[in-house]
Write a protein that binds this DNA or RNA. Structure first.
Length: 580
RNA sequence: GCGCCUGUAGCUCAACCGGAUAGAGCAACCGCCUUCUAAGCGGUAGGUUGCAGGUUCGAUUCCUGCCAGGCGUGCCA
């Protein structure tokens, strides 16, 4: 609708340029917007004000000239110039319900856009497989999953990916933690390192290792302490690194038993958790594969060739300051090991070479310091950093009964995402996590999320859907005839009905805006608006009336609302219940 | 110190990439159930958009400075 109207104005501008009233270089894109105030008609545009200055005319005068050139159209009932030079349009009554017809016709595809041929990858969650997902990961998961849905609905080819950090020091710490618990289970006395992972699941994995493994070596805990710096607050890292080194040495090839056991158990737990959360991935990309494929070394060589590396104090550095970073970064440590960042460079090179037009990273806000360096790496490798979009997700604070819940990972007593889901349900989780702008702090009120009232936006929206379903179940004589409804939409004349039709017509735009701006929260606000429009209508007028023509016209409108709510909730990964 | 993000009604947040009288919900107050779900609806009240400048027809939006809060700033991941 907007596009059609915009096209009319574009034609008018073409004319004015032909007539030399406006210079082609001064031309601006026509913006049509929904009016906020009904007194301003249905749509409004500021074209006149945008072109007035260049054409050396008063805005209102410019508006008259533009309107004069506007091709005639059945869509428009009347046009008026208002305020400082706005052009307000009132649409023809006959087309007011076009969105409803459109919606009924396209059903589950209503709101979706045609193919764009743009390939986009969205990488999200990517939590280290060192433990179960906790509530902090939930927001990234919900946001990322919704983005994937939105971008698909927008017409892009989207691939969702999870980067598995299955190499590196954190994994070694995990493996040694499990191994030490295993030693405990064999009856040894172990002083557990303060830098180790402590959760109950580590002990469980130690137990499983004892039951299933075939570790032949008879290792005494004391042997592992040989030449290892004593554990202390300042030296805890050196302490655990020593334990890891000795464990690897003593275990030899058997080192991989605790390692693989822990990795596969935790990863499959994460996969199951995310799948139950409705966050689906096309690809689980292993960091280890970058090591075994030699891509890490290749990327170092490539940077070397391009002259972006230098040696200093025994380490190999990437001169990221050439690309705006405030500090150069180490790619190979003094001890010969590469860093987490080196893997990231190899990974970004791998992603970029897979031919995506756009690559989106969803990161926790604590990673914002990495944006510059990852873009620097892409640039140093000769890629256009403009292909990368990094979206930060701020942390969510959980509240229950007005009290903020503390999440301490130290004791291992954190709230897992699974616990949260079991507590308040997937629907409320998904909705609340994306309800706010992603880069904004989120207060997640658990009491509200479970409350069954209009204060709870999830229930409010779902309730509208359930109410519609119930109305349809209430038809007991002549069945609903959609064509009869469509043919009699002119029977719908109240303000509530017109408002609903307009709101339904906004849905495709909302998807476009939300997808283009990566702003998932817009879907929530939209659905709340739509639900409010519906509840208002429902409350004031009866749908199942005697006259079949009017009844079916109303039912057609109700069905369109139902479709939009279902489509919208499905983008969010939230169910649309038939009864509540 | 430096970098990034944020500051809008008492609270939680919107505001269509510069537009008209800045909008919702909660909390407060007043109303609406013999009717398809009251898990709902209507109404009243609530603002110097952190502060001060600047850019222009027009600023919550863009620029500068200041104030306040959050996060980051490892040869950690």
């Amino acid at each position: 609708m907007k596009d059609a109207v915009a096209a009319l104005f574009e034609q008018a501008l073409d004319q004015l340029i032909d007539e030399d009233i406006i210079q082609a270089t001064d031309r601006r894109v026509v913006q049509i917007e929904n009016t906020r105030d009904p007194a301003h008609g249905d749509l409004a545009t500021n074209v006149a004000m945008m072109h007035a200055k260049a054409a050396q005319m008063a805005p209102r005068e410019m508006a008259e000239v533009i309107i004069d050139k506007l091709p005639p159209s059945k869509m428009i009932r009347y046009i008026e110039i208002a305020g400082p030079g706005f052009i307000n349009l009132c649409l023809a009554q006959e087309i007011a319900f076009e969105p409803v017809i459109n919606c009924l016709e396209h059903n589950e595809h209503f709101g979706h856009h045609g193919h764009t041929n743009e390939r986009i990858q969205v990488e999200y969650v990517s939590a280290n497989p060192t433990g179960p997902l906790h509530v902090g990961h939930g927001r990234g998961a919900a946001y990322g999953a919704t983005l994937v849905n939105l971008l698909s609905a927008r017409g892009h080819d989207v691939e969702a990916e999870y980067y598995v950090n299955d190499a590196g020091r954190q994994m070694d710490i995990l493996a040694v933690s499990v191994f030490l618990r295993y030693l405990e289970k064999t009856g040894q006395c172990v002083s557990f390192p303060s830098a180790g992972y402590r959760g109950d699941y580590i002990s469980d994995l130690g137990e499983r290792l004892l039951r299933k493994s075939s570790i032949s070596s008879k290792i005494k805990f004391n042997e592992l302490l040989k030449n290892v710096i004593a554990d202390s607050e300042e030296k805890k890292d050196a302490h655990i690194d020593g334990l890891i080194q000795n464990s690897k040495q003593c275990l030899g090839g058997e080192w991989w038993q605790p390692f693989d056991l822990a990795l596969s158990a935790i990863l499959s737990d994460i996969k199951e958790d995310l799948s139950e959360f409705g966050a689906n991935f096309d690809q689980w990309f292993s960091e280890k594969s970058l090591v075994s494929s030699g891509e890490i070394n290749m990327v170092i060589a490539k940077l070397e060739d391009r002259g972006h590396l230098y040696e200093n104090a025994g380490a190999l550095w990437f001169r990221s300051t050439d690309f705006g970073d405030d500090k150069d970064r180490v790619v190979r440590r003094e001890n010969g090991e590469t860093t987490y960042f080196t893997s990231d460079i190899a990974y970004i090179a791998n992603k970029l070479s897979r031919g995506f037009d756009r690559i989106i990273y969803v990161w926790g806000a604590d990673h914002h310091g990495y944006i510059v360096r990852i873009k620097a790496a892409a640039q140093a490798l000769g890629f256009d950093p403009g292909r990368l979009t990094i979206r930060l997700v701020q942390f969510a604070n959980l509240y229950k009964d007005g009290e903020r819940l503390q999440m301490s990972t130290r004791s291992g007593s954190f709230v897992t995402l699974r616990e949260l889901r079991e507590d308040i349900g997937r629907d409320a989780c998904r909705y609340f996590y994306v309800m706010r702008k992603a880069d904004q702090h989120l207060d997640f009120d658990l009491s509200l999320a479970t409350s069954q009232s209009k204060d709870n936006p999830v229930y409010y929206v779902q309730y509208a859907h359930a109410r519609i379903c119930r109305v349809f179940e209430g038809i007991n004589d002549t069945p609903f005839d959609q064509n009869r409804g469509i043919n009699n939409l002119a029977d719908l004349t109240t303000q509530e009905e017109l408002d609903l039709a307009t709101t339904i017509g906004r849905f495709p735009e909302v998807i476009k805006r939300a997808a283009d701006g990566l702003e998932a929260h817009l879907v929530c606000y939209y659905l709340q608006d739509l639900a409010a429009d519906f509840h208002r209508w429902y409350n004031g007028s009866r749908l199942l009336v005697e006259t079949l023509e009017t009844r079916d016209a109303r039912l057609a409108l109700a069905k369109a609302v139902q479709i939009v709510i279902r489509n919208g909730l499905s983008l969010l990964g939230v169910s649309a219940p038939r009864s509540m």
